[in-house]
Design a protein around this nucleic acid. Sequence first.
DNA 1: GTATTTGCAAATACTTTGCAAAACC
DNA 2: GGTTTTGCAAAGTATTTGCAAATAC
Lengths: 138, 138
Amino acid sequence: MTGKKNKVMRLTSQRKVILEELRKVTSHPTATEIYDMVRERLPRISLGTVYRNLELLSSNAIIQKLDFGEAQKRFDGNPEPHYHISCSECGRVDDIHIPLNRELEDKAADYSGYEISGHHVEFRGVCPNCRDKAATRH
Amino acid sequence: MTGKKNKVMRLTSQRKVILEELRKVTSHPTATEIYDMVRERLPRISLGTVYRNLELLSSNAIIQKLDFGEAQKRFDGNPEPHYHISCSECGRVDDIHIPLNRELEDKAADYSGYEISGHHVEFRGVCPNCRDKAATRH
DNA sequence: GTATTTGCAAATACTTTGCAAAACC
DNA sequence: GGTTTTGCAAAGTATTTGCAAATAC
């Protein structure tokens, strides 16, 4: 019905550690960053395994795969929809937990005729750290 | 001051045709789609040139580079900020010209301490075509 | 016991880049 | 005339995949 595969997802040590490490941070790491984090606990894990698990976990809505237009995708251990902001200076990505604006979806549906299933908001700006650094330079 | 290069951007036939073709459509084509469109008028143009021009034009805010999490980036001949919606069935991308919600930026600034420079909203849903097709199938 | 998952390495997909020749202003 | 841009081909980067061995249940 939903098109999802019906395979049982086994709890391998690799999968468990990837999920644990991802849930520890709010930094929205890339696949290679996660690889590095996980390798401290599982030195023999391969990058391919990390990619495969991130793909599987995100397609099962256990984590989120994010794309901020950079070369590498990022991952978020929190599967609940929420907004994000990225710093144009240092590239860091933070969560923005303001309430989702459902009215936007109604407007978009009226405008487009689409049947809307969700939306995402990405803010751009300069993070407090980088703003302070810039100020210090004067 | 702004970090932009000060080179003069020359009006080559390749650049002109790329821009013209991109402005003709609202389909948010990928680089290879633009390559195919342009090649009908300039059969000897190379894909590298298309990429270089799309990069240059978007970094000069003459066009927009968009990323919907697919493998390929997409391009929009309209440089004005506006929202987008993509169809989860067929992948098409449409503009949503509802007014930008600046209040969201204020809320995000309050929440995060960032200095916000802009935001983008992406809706997901099923386009009218695909909805009709799905209905017909029953 | 059997289907899923892993590590490894090779393959793929998209985009970028070096360079000499051509084009623009 | 000097700088930018092009075509071409090769390189780069991120991600995916085939396969035999290992693992989970």
